[in-house]
Every structure is written in structure tokens, then in C-alpha cells.
């Protein structure tokens, strides 16, 4: 049984259906990508999984248990951790204190007084932002803040990592290092579910990819399968005459570059 199962989740805001019958899984030791154009409902899916948004219908199962109605913090305690597309770092604390707070929380009230600074430093080191440890979190670059959010997750040793556009703000070499970190984390047994716009990164590191288009999963499969899927190209390029798609840009180029460029 997969670690995370999202079953037929529907989210409606007024008359707008943000997520429609979404169904996908994420499992240990695998990196799962959730991609799709802006406004396709990816972040809403994350909110449903973590409990920040209650679905109109459908269910979320985590570790074999139905958590659809479980409170946000309880899901976290069962091993979910997430980062945010719009940063949610604790701006007035230092980078180190950000991670320390996460460890305080993860340690429970029994461990309140014993937050080990070694574990904090280890997490900072792991994502490669030790040099920023003493800086206030609202004064560091966006990419670094995203890594900080990841470090904050890692210190609690979660089973499932939900990463919302983790690489935006990173330069090319940082992105490469980040990809390697993800692979290493997965090989240690973590399940990673990632919303990402950098197609090169997604195609390189992901084991499975689900493509979301206006709220519906239109395609699931390996990177190669997704790349070749006609519906995916339509989703990214907009409805265009099919022959034009073929003449203008090669299918592979279309999925690998255009989304990264324009969305």
C-alpha cells in the first residue's frame, strides 16, 4: 500500500472547481512529481493533503489511515512535512532559530528543553545553507529561504516531504545540487511529492509524474511516458491546431522548455 493516497479529491470554491476527482499516490523511496500549468490546482492539492483545505469530497489516506478529517498538526506528527510556494519562513527569527523551532515542535513538549543544536546544524548543513545560520530569515534570498523551509522539514525526520516549487530562485548549479539531495533523501526511504516548474529537474529526478490540468489528472506515468503524451502538450501550450504543434516545435522541446519559460 502506498504511503500517501489521494482518492478522487474534489475541491470547489463557489462555482469554480479547483480540483476535480484527483487521484494519485506517493510512496517511500520514490520522488513523485506533480506538474501542470499555473492555476491547475497543484497547491490546492497540497493544501488538501496537509489539511489546510478541506476537500468538497474524496479522501486522503496516509500510512494506511484515512486522514481526510485529521487536524493539520496531527498529520504533521504522523510524518508529513511541507514547504510553501509563497514563503512561510519565520521572518523575524534567524535561520538557525527557524530550524530550532521546527525541532522544538517535532520534539514535543517533553523534548522542549533539549533541542539539540547538533541536529539543527546538521539539517542546515544538509541543505547547504550553514553560512546563513545567523541571518534573519527575511533577509536571505528566495532560493535560500526555500532551502531553509526544507531544512525545517528535515529536522523532524518526516516520512513524506511535500515540496511546493522548491527550486525556483535557485541557479543552475544549486538546482543540480538540490536534485542530488532529493535523490539522496529518497534513497534513505523518504517519500517525496514535488510541485515543480523546472521541467529539466522534474524529468531528471522524478520516478513518477502526475500531470494536473484545470483540476484533473490528465496523465500519470514515468517521465518518458509523460513527455510523449499529447494531452500534456495541449495542456501546456493551450488548444492549438494540432498540425501547428507539430510544425512549430518538436514535442519534446515543447514540454521541456516552454513551461519553464512562460509559466
Amino acid at each position: 500500500m502506498p504511503l500517501l493516497e489521494v482518492n478522487d479529491v474534489v475541491v470547489r470554491f463557489g462555482g469554480v472547481t479547483a480540483v476535480n476527482q484527483a487521484r494519485f499516490t506517493a510512496d517511500e523511496r520514490r520522488i513523485t512529481g506533480l506538474i501542470g500549468p499555473n492555476g491547475a490546482g497543484k497547491t490546492t492539492c497540497f493544501n488538501v493533503i496537509t489539511g489546510l483545505q478541506r476537500p468538497t469530497s474524496g479522501s486522503v489516506r496516509f500510512g494506511g489511515r484515512d486522514v481526510t478529517r485529521t487536524a493539520v498538526h496531527r498529520r504533521a506528527r504522523r510524518g508529513m512535512a511541507r514547504t510553501f510556494q509563497r514563503l512561510e519562513a519565520f521572518g523575524s527569527l534567524t535561520v538557525r532559530d527557524n530550524v530550532r523551532v521546527a525541532l522544538d515542535i517535532a520534539g514535543g513538549f517533553g523534548g522542549l528543553m533539549r533541542s539539540s543544536s547538533a541536529r539543527v546544524d546538521e539539517a542546515l548543513d544538509r541543505v547547504g545553507i550553514s553560512e546563513y545560520a545567523a541571518e534573519r530569515a527575511d533577509s536571505i534570498p528566495t532560493g535560500t529561504a526555500r532551502l531553509l523551509e526544507l531544512a525545517r522539514c528535515l529536522v523532524g525526520d518526516p516520512k513524506l516531504l511535500l515540496l511546493d516549487e522548491p527550486s525556483s530562485g535557485l541557479d543552475e548549479s544549486e538546482t543540480d545540487a538540490f536534485g542530488e539531495l532529493l535523490i539522496a533523501l529518497a534513497s534513505e526511504g523518504k517519500a517525496i511529492l514535488m510541485v515543480e516548474h523546472d521541467m529539466d529537474l522534474v524529468m531528471t529526478v522524478c520516478d513518477d509524474i502526475h500531470v494536473l490540468d484545470f483540476g484533473e489528472i490528465i496523465c500519470s506515468g514515468s517521465p518518458a511516458e509523460v513527455r510523449a503524451d499529447a494531452r500534456v502538450q495541449a495542456a501546456y501550450l493551450g488548444a492549438s491546431d494540432t498540425d501547428e504543434t507539430q510544425h512549430d516545435l518538436a514535442p519534446l522541446d515543447a514540454t521541456t522548455t516552454i513551461p519553464a519559460v512562460t509559466s
Binding site: G51, A76, R77, A81, F84, E88, V101, A106
Partner: peptide
């Protein structure tokens, strides 16, 4: 929100 998703009640 971050506190909640990190597990704080």
C-alpha cells in the same frame, strides 16, 4: 500555517 504543518497544536 508553517507552525501547523510542522506539527504544533
Amino acid at each position: 500555517s508553517a507552525c501547523g504543518t510542522l506539527g504544533l497544536d
